[in-house]
Design a protein around this nucleic acid. Sequence first.
RNA 1: GGCGCCGUGGCCGAGAGGUUAGGCAGAGGCCUGCAAAGCCUCGUACAGCGGUUCGAGUCCGCUCGGCGCCUCCA
Length: 423
Amino acid sequence: MRVHDTLTGSLVELPPVPGPIGMYVCGPTVYHRAHIGNARPFVVFSWLRNWLRETGYEVTFVHNVTDVNDRIYEAAPGRSAELAERATRWYFEDTGDLGLGMPDEMPLATQSMPEIVGLIEELVEFGHAYPVEGDVYFRVARFAAYGRLSGQRPDQVEEQEPNALKEDPRDFALWKATKPGEDTSWDSPWGRGRPGWHIECSAMAEKALGAEFEIHGGGLDLVFPHHENEIAQSQAVGRPFARIWMHNGMLELGGDEMHKSLGNDVSLRNVLDTWGREATLVFFLAGHWHGPIDFSDDVMTGATARAEGFREVFRGQSEPASSGAWERFAAALDDDFNTPAALAVIHEWRDHDLLRRALGIFGLDSLSYIDEAPEEVVALAARRQVARADRDFDEADRVRAAIEAAGWEVRDEAEGFRLVRLR
RNA sequence: GGCGCCGUGGCCGAGAGGUUAGGCAGAGGCCUGCAAAGCCUCGUACAGCGGUUCGAGUCCGCUCGGCGCCUCCA
């Protein structure tokens, strides 16, 4: 299998089965309820984990939560801990409702302080970082490979707000002295404070996966500075860190109207409540993980119809797939995890077992569950059969309307009828 | 100003030098008491302009457009 790697800008081959493959995927900074875009990395990398396991890899999927950060302090002055805890719970709930299971580990920054402080100490010790008035900054100039991931040249990076404490405007904070109004802080050799934005990931990734691991993932917006800085922090003190960098594309919202309402309308919670988890997953499946995707009502309507199309296959007779069917499906996924191409392959399938297995990788085996109509609806359908036999079609149509009012569609078949739940 | 992702038919979306992607929507047909489902048929599209080539969505250059990042966003 090969995947697109940001570092080299090309497709790189994964090690042979069974790996092992350590996969660290940046999770949310918890200061609000996740929106549908935040769900993309969770979905993409959960699926990737499933597929890698399906093909025989030993995978450890680590997905962190950054629960201490400037944004959280700003969003809830004096009560950041409370907000972080609540938003973390939301994230667990909302991503949990996607039905893709949990990552193997979901470390919290606030519970990784010894590792964070230890890593900073090491950076200071080797001259890659310097403490100033309770802050500690990373010395960018000392790390020669800085900018390799993002293609940023240090001298071209936009001028920063002047910060008298920094030796160089490009330096970034590893540790920040606690400020008035901040309700959380931890002890450190530099005094009470809390970690800067990037260091927590370097520390948590190493704690969970070791100094070297296979895949680091996250949104494309994290390439710079977040991931660039993670590499600098870890490699400056000799950790090889991640071999492959996978960045999922951004989710875009069509029309300006949606832009304005960026908020509850497009919260993952709301999307799940409005469209259901299956359509939401099909929506993500229909776009290549690496490219941008547009979120809109039209697209979700299409995804709903597509999900229903699969359900329809399971209502029919299973027919054996042609030889090589699974191989074609696997080939699509093995080539940069091309889910739209894989989706096209399985659309041709009428083989229930094979289709269920393929959909299962994406958490969509539920599409194979056929709903059974309640007794009273079955009774109505039976009554309609009698009316039809008597050629009383007015009555038959009336009963059908009643069945539809109850949320079911009746289909006449060669012998008898079939009831299909309306969605 | 710099760095990066992307631009395919009504819509979504694969493909990366030469033979049908696929889905959704739509039209016609078969079937049906009427339907639904299913099946059959129907769309020559690759932002624009140059160039390379026997041949270009596919390679090169430029332009236009969307999106992301530039040290508090997945």
